[in-house]
């Protein structure tokens, strides 16, 4: 499968009062994991809902599998985990999953067998015959996650799949997503957790206020963002360290988290001089490493203050 699986071209969606998505273009290539990143209210969910044909764009075109109406006509090849989870509360877990797969055209008996296998894999075997309402939120989320994968879709769209999960369950789901992508299928997921995206994604798009800020593979993005970054860890005298990091002849920008910091060296700044200065200041340096910029710092730099001022738009769906 070559070419793009999802192609979003100059799409705009307005709600009364504000523009949720503004001339956005995306190109999700076949295979691999594609991350749609952005702060709250950036328009991630709106974009995903337009790709799923749940809402229609005001302007622009969206094609899935090269066809404009594919998200409806070829829905059997797509697995979708919406941002707001929903299951039939009174149904038994296994019946629920069987039904979800049947709605994707899978035969009943096959669907049931697959559901049981998946439940076992995600450690939910004991809950197979329980009603959905008896499950915890996290378990319900896993059940719905299974529901998106049960019919072996070629394209999997996950809207904030890890939100609200504990680290263990998060890890389990991450492993599944990575494995699915390795089978040559395409995963598109949205998140605002950068560490997760950095570990998983082959390609990334960062959007804010409905507009695209960054687009490319992880290595492309880091190369383009450029700058020499130093990762630091201090064990004492954090205030003195902060003073050093504030020296603009040495450091162009610093993301100071107290005990650790990521500093971007000033143009012409010398990492050795920074190291010497920090040792003089006696900050108990336990890590000093010249690194690529983290996705987190790229995100902060690109989205900047916008993230802090962005209104909570994502709650407003007309």
């Amino acid at each position: 499968m070559n070419g793009s699986v999802v192609k979003v071209e100059r799409v705009t969606k307005r709600y009364s009062g504000h523009t949720a998505v503004d001339g956005l273009s995306l190109d999700v290539p076949a295979g691999g994991i594609f991350g749609l990143l952005g702060p709250n209210g950036a328009g991630k969910s709106t974009t995903i809902r337009m790709i799923m044909n749940i809402i229609t764009p005001d302007e622009g075109k969206i094609a899935v599998f090269g066809r404009e109406s594919a998200s409806r006509d070829m829905s059997d090849k797509i697995g979708f985990l919406p941002e707001e989870r929903g299951l039939y509360k009174k149904m038994k877990v296994v019946d629920q999953l069987t039904f979800l797969a049947e709605a994707k055209g899978i035969h009943r008996a096959v669907a049931r067998k697959k559901a049981v296998t998946w439940l076992e894999r995600l450690g939910l075997t004991d809950w197979t015959m329980k009603k959905v309402e008896d499950l915890s939120k996290g378990m319900q989320q896993k059940v719905q996650f299974i529901g998106t994968l049960l019919h072996d879709p070629d394209l999997i769209i996950l809207d904030e799949p890890f939100s609200g999960l504990d680290p263990v369950n998060s890890q389990v789901m991450k492993d599944v997503v990575v494995e699915v992508a390795r089978q040559g299928r395409t995963v598109l997921f949205s998140t605002h957790i950068m560490e997760q995206a950095e570990r998983m994604c082959d390609r990334i798009v960062i959007i804010a206020r409905g507009q695209k800020l960054v687009d490319g593979t992880l290595s492309e993005i880091k190369r383009e963002f450029g700058g020499r970054h130093v990762a630091l860890t201090f064990t004492r005298n954090a205030d003195r360290a902060a003073r050093v990091l504030a020296d603009r002849t040495l450091v162009a920008k610093a993301d100071d988290s107290g005990a650790t910091a990521e500093a971007e060296l000033a143009p012409g700044g010398d990492p050795e001089r920074l190291l010497r200065t920090l040792i003089q200041e006696d900050v108990g340096l336990s890590r000093f490493e010249v690194v690529e910029p983290s996705l987190h710092s790229i995100f902060i730099a690109k989205v900047g203050t916008e993230a802090a001022t962005a209104p909570a738009k994502e709650l407003v769906h007309a």
Partner: peptide, 15 residues
């Protein structure tokens, strides 16, 4: 179904 958003999952599978 509308309120608990099942409808979005259904709409991604059924007309």
């Amino acid at each position: 179904e509308k309120n608990n958003r099942i409808v979005e999952v259904l709409a991604s599978s059924l007309t």
